[in-house]
Write a protein that binds this DNA or RNA. Structure first.
Lengths: 343, 343
DNA sequence: GTACGCTTGGAGAGCGCTTTCCAGATTGCG
DNA sequence: CGCAATCTGGAAAGCGCTCTCCAAGCGTAC
């Protein structure tokens, strides 16, 4: 084992009896190098245990081989504890898993970045000079200025979930409206007469789309008006919303809940209220997260292929990193309904 | 906005009319620099929009300001899909959240690294020359060689969960035995006569400790023999284990389940079998994950302060990065029992 | 036999930053 | 008032790598 200093290109060159340039060419597999020299160099590399220094390489190539996963919450102050709660959400893990599935084969690193309202400028600065080659952005709140800043700075970036305001930036998203419509159709098909909805926060695009899509579809089925209570995507808020919905509309016999976690809460409240699911009240969730399977009765829900979407985002980003002038593009995934027991 | 080239130290120096060295000193807050010059330099920095280039800085300082979160699964081949499943586990998110809570205030980046059996050597190589300043290791399988390799290479590293074999490396862990004993005490206090256990995989240290601790404590309470079924920490495996346990020991009136997810499964099976919880069968889980609260009845469980532990791991790592010769240390957390409804 | 084209390896100029070493300026004290 | 001691800012040497020239070396054709 080397004492302290790690072997450098120089060392390998000396051992192999060639110049640094030649070693560099061999290591990077470039150009025509005499096969004999090629061989010679490789043995020298093995022998010295040489590993190229990433920093030095990046300094000249202007490439880091890293992309950032930016969790942006512009409404949160930088040292708020809020965001750590976000990490516990299955959402986060699914995204990471999806990203990794394409990043790892491409030998690209993933660096985690959290940024609150105050960090936007610094983040863009850091990104601009090679903190990372690009960024996948998870924009929590509505009207996040970050996508715009990123676009202005010409930093390769891909959003997961469409931006609230139109911005020239690539993104992947789910056809949330279609998904919500699927839920509405199911409820209607079951013959529900009095349909309600538990929505997410009103200012999140994905949440808005689910509301719009659900309303439009129920209207098509003859339900002019759908009572709605809103939560913030946590189980607890789902319980609260269900309680209020039930209080206002006792004959409710079908409800669409904008995510599975809230649906879980709704299920508990319904049970406590003595309603059978799905006999008395049919429930449809959204996301098809692991919670949906864990629920009793198992949740009928709209499948949200988050892993695939994250993987696609990673692919788009990689393309964009390769060619910064590539066309801005978006990929919209079609949700499907997963029928289980709750509706 | 600059056209293409970002401003460098040189540029700032020219604008301020001083040398690069002086700008560097000011930017890094070093040495005595004339307050007037200091001021001058800062305005030049603002004016040019200068952001130090991390790569160049790292190249000379040998510091990256990044630590890696290594998810090691030496039993998995590098392109197995297994690990992506791991990300969806709340465990992962809790660790990330805990790490971030100390890394972010310290302005240290977190880079995600997954590594299977084949990647160990490369990982160590990459780490050794400045991929990252150190690593927090999440070692999934038993007998992972990685901790040893890391120690040999003198790479600052901290494990979450004790290593299977003794290795000179820092770690944080939970007093799993104590936790299991807490569960046993609770079951005994409730007057359970026929106690069973659903354990995790036999080769994972944490799992072993829970088994040992539970057996020892039940023995103290006069239960010489505890029937045990094992799972792999998933809900589904918990269901299976519960079914087999119930089949073999119909008069079971108390069960300790080695994690909450499996406990969730056990609860479902018990309900299907017509057993009331906790009246007929008392159930104690482990982890106090969000699943424990979501369960009905809410799960009595052993609290596993994973976020705190991860935060501590980050602190230990930071210390070690600062002083590589710091003493190897371990921090063991004491679990507590969270009594809810299931026992 | 000379000229010309092509291949191949080496020299060397940076990439942007930190940091050591030194010279010049300033101060304190005899 | 002079000399040593102290402080400040600049020049310059790298950190390890890539990549653009350039000079040989070789083969071919005239």
């Amino acid at each position: 084992m080397q004492s302290h200093r790690l072997p450098t290109l120089e060392d390998v060159a000396r051992v192999a009896g060639v110049s640094r340039a030649t070693v560099s060419r061999v290591v990077n597999g470039i150009r025509n190098v005499d096969p004999q020299l090629h061989e010679l160099v490789w043995t020298a590399v093995e022998q010295t245990g040489y590993v190229p220094n990433k920093m030095a390489r990046s300094l000249v190539t202007r490439r880091t081989g890293t992309v950032a996963l930016v969790v942006s919450d512009s409404e949160t102050h930088d040292d708020d504890p809020f965001m750590s709660r976000f990490f516990a959400d299955p959402y986060f893990g699914r995204v990471v898993g999806g990203l990794m599935s394409v990043l790892r084969p491409a030998s690209v690193q993933l660096a985690l970045q959290m940024v609150g309202a105050d960090g936007h400028k610094r983040l863009v600065g850091d990104l601009r000079n090679g903190q990372a080659d690009g960024a996948v952005v998870l924009s929590l709140p509505a009207r996040d200025p970050l996508p715009g800043l990123l676009a202005d700075a010409r930093i390769p970036a891909v959003l997961i979930g469409r931006p609230a305001d139109p911005v020239p930036i690539s993104y992947v998203d789910l056809a949330n409206e279609t998904g919500a419509a699927l839920a509405a159709d199911r409820l209607a098909a079951r013959g529900c007469r009095q349909i309600g909805m538990i929505s997410g926060p009103a200012d999140v695009p994905a949440s808005q789309d689910r509301i719009t899509g659900f309303r439009r579809a129920t209207a098509r089925h003859g339900h002019a008006w759908v009572p709605t209570a809103s939560g913030n995507f946590t189980q607890e808020s789902g319980e609260r919303a269900m309680r209020s919905l039930l209080a206002g509309h006792p004959q409710l016999d079908g409800v669409f809940v904008a995510n599975d976690l809230m649906a879980l809460g709704a299920l508990l409240v319904l049970r406590d209220a003595g309603r059978r699911v799905p006999e008395d009240v049919a429930v449809v969730g959204f996301d098809d997260s692991s919670a949906a399977l864990a629920a009793r009765p198992a949740l009928t829900t709209v499948r949200h292929p988050l892993e695939d979407m994250a993987a696609e985002a990673a692919k788009l980003l990689l393309v964009r990193v390769e060619d910064p002038d590539a066309r801005v593009s978006s990929v919209i995934y079609e949700p499907t309904l997963v029928v289980r027991q709750s509706a």
